[in-house]
Design a protein around this nucleic acid. Sequence first.
DNA 1: TGTTTATGCCGAC
DNA 2: TCGGCCTAAACAC
Length: 263
Amino acid sequence: MPELAELKLTADYVNFLSEGKVFSHITKNPEHKWKEVKFNDFTIRAESRGKELKLKLDPVGGEESRDLIMTMGMGGNFQWADKDTQIKHTHLFFHTPGNEHLAFVDIRRFGKWKWGNWNESRGPDPTTEYEDFRVNVIRNLGKVSFNKPIYEMLMDQRYFNGIGNYLRAEILYRIPGANPFLSAREFIVNHGDRLFELCKDIPLHVYEIGGGTIKDWENPFGGKSNISDFMKCYGNPDMLRLSDRGGRTFWYDPKWKLETVFV
DNA sequence: TGTTTATGCCGAC
DNA sequence: TCGGCCTAAACAC
């Protein structure tokens, strides 16, 4: 479930499933490591920020609410299930007093959760905190980490919270006059305004069309998305690709082929 | 049957 | 900065 648009959809879907319901307690899949979560008799409201999800658990008794901060890893998602149709790889069960539960399902177990608030080391959300997002990048342009090429920088969650592997490819592809192998600093000095816009508009657009349906991810609300019309670069056999320093595949326009000599 | 690949972090060196 | 954390599907042979 992955990048900014899908996190937003996940928040919507959790809210849709949880609307008007009171949950009795939480259990964790005992076969799996990671932390227990204890909480009783509460409602749930979800919100996303970049690639994080916040579940605000509000006790019906009137005590203080607590926030469970989650990440979805490569494929985490929420589903509604009951005792008879338990879903494989469910890690957290938010039980209702009946036999039903909200299930956090994550095949690869890369998703995580903790009590608290948004991870301070992640930057502002480019869609909901646009000005903060821009300023955070611009104010830090002098830092050494902006020496690395822009195609790697877009994966840096301190500045581009919510951008991931398919979004970076689609964003850079839509600035056709700009070399994705330029240093992040030089790229932003010359094309910053367009880049910032796209970091907001592209995820919002994908959100509108129901998320990037790749591999495990499906729009929880169902329905067909036109993601194949949107996905111009990522996964396109006509594009070039390389393995970046994080071992992730970067997809790019073949016209920049010669530029990779300097990578 | 074996290898590669996948929307992402994390932490040990 | 590199390997580790995980499972499953798509390929390769």
